[in-house]
């Protein structure tokens, strides 16, 4: 049985351009997402996709509207509660990998566990990386890895925390075709196993393999597509 994990109501985001000017990036966006959902957010460049993902994930306070993650408003939580939510409920996979450059591969993967004071099992992390076809040394520093390998580390970090909701911003944007397939399959498996995955992407082919697509243009949610096809998504994006 699926459970509603994200609810967005009338979300708007403005950025200030000086004292009396502001620019509207997101306008009155409402939708909800449940566990097992794999949702893609698509739209032309500058449509507000990444801003929406940041607002949803508690990283950027919206100007108006409400967001509920797992029945909690992330912007009303105390700093410690926010940190706990990020360690236990949320997972982040970004195009820029978001790996801590000071830490080696293994420490990057288990960082949320260490911060939560949980037990760390090296053998299970090794197994996990093997499944992801990760070939580099676990003790090497992340800055020495290729883009694909770095993204696998970021995914492994999400996997070890068993996050309920995963936010992915262009996760395949800077990787080769082979890594792209592995990463997407991973996200698909996570959704099938009960997680809610929300992915921002430019890749129409990938978006077409998700359960739902939210099409954004000029900061507005112009279309919700269920079981979308590539041609449907493309048509919506290109519609003037």
């Amino acid at each position: 049985m699926t459970e509603k994990v994200i609810a967005v109501q009338e979300l708007s985001k403005d950025f200030s351009l000086g004292k009396h000017k502001s620019i509207h990036i997101l306008k009155n966006i409402s939708f909800s997402a449940a566990s097992n959902d794999f949702i893609s957010i698509v739209g032309p460049s500058g449509s507000g996709k990444s801003t929406l993902l940041k607002c949803l994930s508690g990283l950027l306070r919206p100007t108006n509207g409400s967001i509920s993650i797992d029945d909690m408003d992330p912007y009303q939580l105390s700093p410690s509660q926010t940190a706990k939510m990020r360690r236990t409920t949320l997972g982040f996979i970004f195009q820029s990998y978001n790996l801590v450059p000071a830490l080696p591969v293994f420490e990057n993967i288990v960082l949320p566990l260490r911060l939560a004071g949980k037990q760390v099992n090296r053998a299970s992390v090794e197994q996990l990386l093997k499944k992801l076809n990760f070939t580099a040394d676990m003790d090497s520093f992340v800055t020495t890895l290729s883009g694909g390998e770095q993204q696998k580390v970021a995914i492994a970090r999400v996997l070890v925390t068993h996050a309920k909701i995963i936010f992915a911003d262009e996760p395949t944007g800077a990787v080769d075709a082979n890594s792209k397939k592995i990463i997407f399959d991973c996200l698909r498996t996570l959704a099938d196993n009960g997680a809610c995955v929300i992915m921002v992407t430019h890749d129409i082919e990938l978006a077409a393999m998700t359960d739902r697509s939210l099409v954004l243009r000029d900061g507005q949610l112009i279309k919700r597509l269920t079981n979308p096809t590539a041609s449907e998504i493309l048509a919506e994006i290109e519609r003037g």
Partner: peptide, 15 residues
């Protein structure tokens, strides 16, 4: 940037 990342990954202000 580094410390923002630590915060995104769940480090609280005390940590």
């Amino acid at each position: 940037t580094d410390y923002n990342l630590w915060a995104i990954l769940g480090a609280n202000p005390n940590q």
